[in-house]
């Protein structure tokens, strides 16, 4: 599995997006998440189970000006 274009070594069966966020300590309140190019809504972070070949992107959406 890839996270933000880099190999993610801690993939395991049943791993969810939320699991990756917790493991990688993403704490920013507004994130944009894409799996294989498809945008994933926050309510699905617990539901989407990642496959070993998945390409996951997690991006901080900034708001400052």
């Amino acid at each position: 599995m890839k996270l933000n274009n880099r190999p993610y070594k801690d993939w395991h069966e049943g791993l969810t997006i939320r699991g990756v966020m917790e493991h990688m300590k993403f704490t920013w309140p507004k994130l944009v998440v894409k799996v294989n190019g498809t945008l994933i809504w926050p309510e699905d972070y617990d539901r989407v189970v990642l496959k070993e070949e998945d390409d996951l992107q997690i991006i901080h959406l900034l708001g400052g000006g």
């Binding site: 920013w28 309140p29 507004k30 994130l31 944009v32 809504w41 926050p42 959406l61 900034l62 708001g63």
Partner: peptide
């Protein structure tokens, strides 16, 4: 990103 006032940094 859907609007969520609770998730606004």
């Amino acid at each position: 990103s859907p609007e969520d006032p609770a998730a606004a940094p």
